[in-house]
Design a protein around this nucleic acid. Structure first.
Lengths: 211, 211
DNA sequence: TCTAATTTCAAATTCTCATTTGAAATTACA
DNA sequence: TGTAATTTCAAATGAGAATTTGAAATTAGA
């Protein structure tokens, strides 16, 4: 593997910094310093800090999605419960991955929380996952009163998966001894069971295959 | 009621603005403009932007807590399920109150998400609610494997109550037609049922009164 | 009413960045 | 190797805000 270009080094550093800090707190200076580059290099290669963030989001998404696809390796014909479990496990696993595969969810956490409607492009990726994957899945499991109720159930699932990204202050509470290995597996297990049990509070869908 | 002082007007405006925008996006200029005061007035009365935020948090807390106490008016001797329901209903009701009683949760939402360890004072209030109210309540209901598992269950409950404050982008999804009246009541009902059902995934506590 | 303290105000002042600039260095490639 | 394009760099430049300043206005108390 050839030595990384300055542009790549800056993108890596940007993902790392934007995963840690809110947009206005992160500085190009810090990013370029980590990348070992001159502070003008960020703008030279990406045009602006804003554009750099967008690139960082896109790149981080590719890494996260290939390492932890939302299907979780579970077949589309599997039971909806199993697919939901895999979906949640993928998002949670991403969130606690200390390496580049963890950047996307954490960057999005910061972006989500300071969003004021713009940055639609960045959201399209999660909106897609939400509307194309999660909501239909929920419909398979539950007979919702209306669209609003389904959307609310959807945000409940998402909240259970990503709260620590969006409220980073609670990360330490979750894993006093660090989120490696077994504790994380326990956590994923508990969260998905919690979510599935929570969903059982809604009336189950009349399954077409029931005789 | 006497005409409000400039200091009070600025504090009101600060709560309002900090409830809407992240700290670094909010400006003293905007706050003072809303307050109808000179832009130097903020620093004159509060010392710094940072100090103003702290005052705003404290004041917003008083308003929210007196309007929607976390007991929800439910007696401490009531069943833990009922107390938990009231606790959640209080936090959710605060979060969607469009007036001053809604400022606290929304300000905290922004602060939580950009926290990097400091602002401990601001957190003491919620940490108190979390550690003194919620966690013991959970212990009454559930036999947890260990402290970590209880803490994780606690954050699940909190996540279900405050996610929209910490990820304001999802507010619109929750209530396509606005969060007034009946839709909000339905929502609170659904969320608390979801939470209680979710908790049922943990082993129930051996109640001392069971014979 | 007079005086001292408090409060307001507009105009600096400072600080922190993002962004630009232009020259120097490096690279690509013919 | 020579030339043009690309990339790096240090040093401006500029913008946006917080904070400070000092004079003017107001208020409170004797």
């Amino acid at each position: 593997m050839a030595r990384k270009t300055t542009k790549e080094l800056i993108l890596d550093a940007a993902m790392q910094v934007f995963a840690t800090k809110e947009f206005h707190v992160a500085t190009l200076g810090e990013i370029c310093e980590i990348a070992g580059a001159n502070c003008a290099a960020g703008n030279y290669h990406f045009g602006s800090k804003e554009a750099l963030l967008n690139e960082a989001i896109s790149h981080a998404f590719e890494i996260a999605d290939s390492r932890y696809p939302l299907s979780g390796g579970v077949d589309a014909s599997a039971a909806p419960e199993d697919r939901l479990r895999a979906f949640m496990a993928a998002i949670i696993s991403r969130s606690f991955d200390p390496g580049p595969a963890g950047y996307f969810e954490r960057i999005i956490g910061h972006v989500l929380s300071s969003s004021s409607g713009e940055r639609d492009e960045a959201f399209s990726k999660i909106r897609e996952a939400h509307e194309d994957v999660l909501l239909p899945l929920l419909s398979e499991m539950i007979e919702f009163r209306d669209e609003a109720q389904r959307a609310q159930a959807g945000t409940a699932i998402i909240a259970l998966c990503v709260f620590q990204n969006v409220a980073p202050g609670c990360r330490e509470d979750l894993f006093p001894d660090g989120p490696e290995g077994e504790p994380l597996q326990h956590y994923i297990e508990d969260r998905t069971r919690f979510a599935l049990a929570g969903l059982s509070a809604y009336p189950p869908a009349k399954l077409p295959c029931v005789k």
